[in-house]
Amino acid sequence: MKIHPKHILAKSLILSFCYLAFNCTQKSGNESDDNSEATDDKSAYYTDEDFGKISKINTHVHFKVYDTTFIAQAKRDHFKLITVNVNSGYSPPIGEQQGLAVKLLKAYPNDLAYATTISVKDFNEPGWAQKTISYLDDSFEKGAIAVKIWKNVGMELKDAKGKFVMIDDPKFDPVLDFIEKSNATFIGHIGEPKNAWLPVDKMTVAGDKNYFSEHPEYHMYLHPEYPTHEYIMAARDHMLEKHPKLKFVGAHLGSLEWDTDTLAKRLDLYPNMAVDMAERITHFEFQAVTNPKKVRDFFVKYQDRLVYATDETVNEKTPIDVYSKQAHENWLEHWKFFTSSEKMKVADVEKEFNGLRLPKTVVDKIYRTNAENWFSLEKFK
């Protein structure tokens, strides 16, 4: 039977229409391949507007003077704070710091918590451990929820023989046991960023370049006679092995800030370890320049072990109203990095990077519930 050319044309038109209709349907169904934000559930993500509405905890700030301006800014931004005492040469005596923390705690019982610290001044004297435990017992009675150890252990403190003292030294064991039995958290600023062992021009972020240029005493590249980064980290790991039930928060990403894979290995090995992000978020941003997916996947996988912190220090050097404004802008920048997928540029990182656009469930843990759990912050719940 001969088919009329008009019938062939009609059939071709029908087939073409069906093909186009099918492809349009397929494109609509797979649109997320080209633009995931167009079809994903936006209710699962926060926006910039949510920053001032969501309850958050900043687990690492320092008050060196009594002031309410910074706390007022934190309250406006829906932040509760943990002020951390520290046994450093830049800080007031630890008893004075504790007195200030207790005064702030009484004034703002629902907005503030505090971490005490310990002195290693008399570490080589008999009775140091018992004296330290007595001080901590008094601190806990006054409301301390955690204990901070500083980088002078491992990088400055020496024993009677002139050898550098590491955090796994047996003299620390009874003190750490007491912290554990008191259900307090041990915050460890152990070591420094790996950048400290590099020349300034090889460092990855501007903040480290500035800090170690201004503080050559901690620029380990200039002090090859000091312990290596690997040695200090190994001592910290040994301490965790000896005290597997001690709640430990590694300050400043546990000094493993340069590589999410290296940090992940420690978190896998030590389930009693979390890390705070104080002054190290730029290292995540630096890694996001080249591999944002890897950084995002790390946050999702270890969402229960990452605690928001910034390390602002309230002192007399900068007018508090100016400093509070700077802190607000810093907090907003962090929020954008965690919650959006936008291109970003910050002062500390040379190149642009994308935000991580983490789900609400992960953001809530980073900003609030992890802090509640790792620091037993029942009063903030």
Rank of each mutant, 00 (worst) to 15 (best):
D364R: 00
K265R: 14
I14C: 07
D177C: 02
G89I: 13
T204A: 10
D48H: 10
F164Q: 02
D168I: 04
E180H: 14
G95Q: 01
K148N: 04
K64H: 09
T116A: 11
N124Q: 12
I281Q: 08
E156L: 10
L263S: 04
A347E: 13
D111T: 08
S36L: 15
N210D: 13
D41L: 09
V102F: 03
N272Y: 09
H328W: 10
E312P: 15
E125S: 12
K163D: 15
G207D: 12
A72Q: 15
L104W: 00
T83W: 02
A146K: 02
K343Y: 03
P292D: 01
E37H: 03
P92H: 05
K158Y: 01
Y45T: 05
Y218F: 13
I94L: 14
T228V: 03
V349R: 02
V86E: 11
Q26W: 05
V205N: 02
L20D: 01
F299Q: 02
S139T: 06
S12T: 08
T260I: 11
K6R: 10
K148G: 03
E37Q: 11
M277F: 13
G355S: 01
P193E: 07
F286Q: 12
W128Y: 12
Q326M: 08
G191Q: 09
N210C: 00
V86T: 12
L105T: 08
V314C: 07
L306P: 04
F212K: 04
E342G: 08
M239D: 05
T132W: 08
N370A: 01
D77P: 03
T262I: 10
I281C: 09
N370S: 03
